[in-house]
Design a protein around this nucleic acid. Sequence first.
DNA 1: CGAATTATATACCGATCGGTATAAAAAGTT
DNA 2: AACTTTTTATACCGATCGGTATATAATTCG
Lengths: 199, 199
Amino acid sequence: MGRPREFDVDDALETAMELFWRKGYEGTSLTDLTEGMGITKPSLYGVFGNKEGLFLKALERYERTKMNFFHEALKEPKARDVAEKILRGFADSQTAETGPSGCLGINGALACSEAAAEIQKCLIENRHRGERDLGKRFERAAKEGDLPAGHEPYDLARYIMTISQGTAIQAASGADRSALYRVIDMALQFWPEMAASQN
Amino acid sequence: MGRPREFDVDDALETAMELFWRKGYEGTSLTDLTEGMGITKPSLYGVFGNKEGLFLKALERYERTKMNFFHEALKEPKARDVAEKILRGFADSQTAETGPSGCLGINGALACSEAAAEIQKCLIENRHRGERDLGKRFERAAKEGDLPAGHEPYDLARYIMTISQGTAIQAASGADRSALYRVIDMALQFWPEMAASQN
DNA sequence: CGAATTATATACCGATCGGTATAAAAAGTT
DNA sequence: AACTTTTTATACCGATCGGTATATAATTCG
């Protein structure tokens, strides 16, 4: 019952996500959001709570729709394939023709005022979580004899995430996908294709 | 003649640089700046023009005092030493105990509103310039037979800059220097120490 | 001592920030 | 039709944004 909503919540959230992705949390004003989403401020606040709530919902959508490759990659049987799928997955997302360049998790609030400190903290934790998940996957690989000699799992995880964060800056600076792929090729060069697990 | 200035311009600029470094261009308000620098707005505008002028002067100071290792590194006789000095130089600067974490050139304006578009563009050009300078150095190395086989100079330059930009995000996320050093060790693993130039 | 010059402090400017109060509009329920 | 519920549109809120006008304080020159 009640008056029916005149806009699609999912479409509006998609637009908000793209705006935050392109302009960052603080760089995106409520006017940017309401004009882009085609709704008024009371509608926005009615559905999403406030700007911070909207960002968090947009981030959740981003993780669900753009970062889904990450947890898929963790399922690869060989650690090197995990690493490569993650690197190329990030590069693909960062250079998609539709949608902004770079990464929402980094563009969102890398350096900001105290007003955005909570968002910044949330994004940092997001990065740590990804790195930790990858480290755990590499711990398994170490037990399986599936890591290159002389490397710690969590160091490898940090390495892979560092490359991906670097490509995010590169993409935000105008680098195209093929350029990032060449970077990734170099980053993986030290990591030999390994024989089948021998545990 | 005239009333003498009551503050040290260099000290004030140093403070402004650190504020922009930590909070970004848009995240740093004039109140942050005047309170931090210990001067009033008319004084700030009298000496530095406006917020954008102040940022550009702070960036210039940053390049001069924090990025000086970069052009020093280009003078290394061996390309691998150039790469390593640059990587460790960035990591050192990004994790200095005094001063903010990360990189002013990235924290300053990665994603922002239209109001900061000019600053953003300037920082992107800054990154391109560094990459180009390194690429030129590697071109020379290629002629000298000083590059690992199968690598293009400008791809190598992008690779090195991507790692450094990645460590900037890592540092901004709390990673310490030793963690970044381990990343750098891995990043350079594919690049063998080469015999003396044979041209 | 003036006069000229520069820097300071205070108070203010219009614009925009995120957020909301109020009331009308559009639906279902009875 | 009347009542209830939800969403809409409009207008507004105090706070802060970057930037400046005005006047006073502090110096050198004559």
